[in-house]
Design a protein around this nucleic acid. Structure first.
Lengths: 361, 361
DNA sequence: CTGAAAGCGCTTACAG
DNA sequence: CTGAAAGCGCTTACAG
């Protein structure tokens, strides 16, 4: 009977006579039981490597499974263990409108995926529009998701705020959420360092071009606070008229933001921009009005965006350690899923990448 | 009993006393059966809207489900219906090493995801490294995937070639795969048009800078063949020494490719580059040697990559209709899943975006 | 129009 | 060390 199955299965594979009937020919643990003479629970034990079992029995079963091309059925497993081996991902593209393409989040997610795949988990993108409007939590319940990673939610989403109370293990790589562990770059310290770099190079009139603030994401504010503190440490008090905030996250916004900043700032010689994309826009505006970086104005960015050709690269910037953030997120989330508690917040150092956008005085 | 469940459930939600025990308090159709006095099969029918059922019965059940916050359990559904409502995605980042960030594929997938989500499907990224090395097909069987979209596989992957025989409904957005429907841009026609644009502008000495060829992907070859044909139609025979092929897909490769091309080409006045990213690299090289686009050399790209700030945009290019490709792919795949056959290949027109990189003679 | 029975493929106590 | 029984939450024929 099992042999028949295998034969037919082979037939289907090689001739595609029937359509979509793969599952009808799937080998189950009962086939294995019949074949080896053991019972289904014993097969299960052998396959999962748990419980005490005679060595020979296990080997015999494993061999039979191999030979028959046995593949476990996740739906059945999931139903009986209540573990879907699915990690829900919250990644909304409201801010940049680039979704999977987002330079920072995309990279982070790539690495995160690799990590959890090794542990047998798959990614499942959570959506509010699913099936005609399900909440994230409902989507999670529907799919029995084991854990959630919040990569980039909508700002001030009330549903996100409640995630910590949902009881579903959860980790955040950007936002602060009550009851959820956040893995995030050392933004404040980076701001401090940026200020020191400028001061060390002899700059006094220093500007700041910010990304939009998000109520629930600390990045923009932390970087600014650190920058002001860094200047203060060097005896320079930051002048508010040298500050401007962009209204988006793209180059265009950086371009306009730069224009606006210069319309009310003093003659600044240095500028810290909280994200590279905005910095590139700012540089474009400067070029347009005939100013050069760093000859006329020194600049430090943030993110090390990878969008530029290596040979064109000159912007000094802070690289966020996406791989490390992803790794830690995966590790902490997996821990949480198995009941091991973790810290509320983990900070990951950034790396200052010195190129040639700072001029010495 | 059910009320108790709801109460406890509320308690868990609001205080997070227990961890990860959501599922223990899930409302099932049996709870609904007890509550309404109907049997489980009847509940099922009401919930799924199929079979004949008394109107009042259905309404009563639906109301009870709503009130109890009932959510179906996909694992159970999947086990009994053999439909996982999961679409497997094959997207490898070998070529650009950018994974989710890939400009073309990321955008395409965003749209595709929206389409299938409306039909109640979720995306599942297929991987070969899953669980310590499963094949795509094994991964599909493991998760009982209903269909597959091949966005960007590894070149010449033998597993991909066999996808058509697997019996799993499958669609491809780039590669040609035996027995699998491909939705792809009109590459040949675009090549023809590019040639005509140059010729109309009075160019005679015309070069071609190609992306690497992929054995299983037609794009690069089709564009080139079309271009040669377009020139021939205008009485110009393409000179092989004006041809060069880049060894990667990034700007750096375009930069080097351009250098190489000029080392053996005649003094070309126009250049067709098969992808924008390469074109930007080529432009960088030209700038380096003091040549300008289009003053010294006219250029047409491909893809309309979105990487550049709108106000800096001057490269004329062909925009692939990602949304259309994604829509059609979703529609055709969903059809296939429900047994409706479709065509082997669907071509989607590109749009020529005329900007200012072609100089008239 | 509604329900009793059986099944999807797996695992979890519990016996022996 | 191994197996019989029951259960996970849902659906599918089949009766009535």
């Amino acid at each position: 009977m099992r042999h028949l199955k295998v034969l037919i299965s082979f037939y289907v594979y090689s001739t595609n006579l029937f359509n979509n009937d793969l599952s009808d020919f799937m080998v189950t643990i009962y086939d294995l039981a019949r074949e080896t003479g053991f019972s289904a629970p014993t097969i299960s034990k052998a396959l999962n490597g748990n419980g005490r079992l005679n060595k020979e029995t296990r080997e015999k079963i494993l061999k039979a499974a191999e030979k028959a091309g046995y593949k476990p059925n996740m739906a059945a497993k999931s139903l009986s263990t209540k573990q879907s081996k699915l990690i829900g991902v919250i990644l909304e593209d409201a801010s940049m409108n680039r979704g999977f393409e987002h330079p920072l989040f995309g990279g982070l997610l790539n690495k995160f995926r690799k990590e959890i795949e090794m542990a047998g988990y798959d990614l499942l993108f959570l959506s509010k529009h699913f099936n005609g409007g399900m909440s994230y939590i409902d989507h999670c319940i529907y799919r029995d998701v084991d854990g959630i990673i919040v990569v980039n939610p909508i700002d001030e989403d009330p549903e996100i705020a409640k995630l910590g109370e949902s009881g579903i293990p959860c980790i955040s790589t950007n936002e602060f959420i009550d009851g959820v562990c956040t893995v995030v770059s050392e933004n404040f310290e980076s701001g401090v360092l940026a200020a020191k770099k400028f001061v060390e190079a002899g700059h006094k009139k220093i500007g700041y071009l910010s990304a939009p603030f998000r109520k629930t994401s600390p990045a923009a504010k932390e970087r600014f606070d650190g920058f002001v503190k860094g200047l203060a440490d060097c005896g320079i008090s930051f002048d508010d008229k040298n500050y401007e905030i962009c209204d988006h996250w793209n180059e265009e916004a950086g371009f306009k933001g730069m224009e606006k900043l210069l319309s009310h700032s003093e003659e600044i010689t240095a500028l810290f921009v909280t994200c590279d994309t905005l910095a590139f826009g700012a540089i474009s505006y400067l070029e347009k009005i005939g100013k050069k970086v760093p000859d006329d104005i020194s600049m430090i960015g943030f993110d090390d965006d990878d969008l530029v050709m290596p040979s064109n690269l000159f912007l000094s910037t802070f690289r966020q350690n996406r791989d490390k953030i992803a790794e830690l997120s995966a590790e902490l989330l997996l821990n949480k899923i198995s009941g091991i508690p973790g810290p509320d917040i983990v900070r990951v150092p950034t790396e200052f990448i010195e190129r040639s956008s700072i001029k010495n005085y």
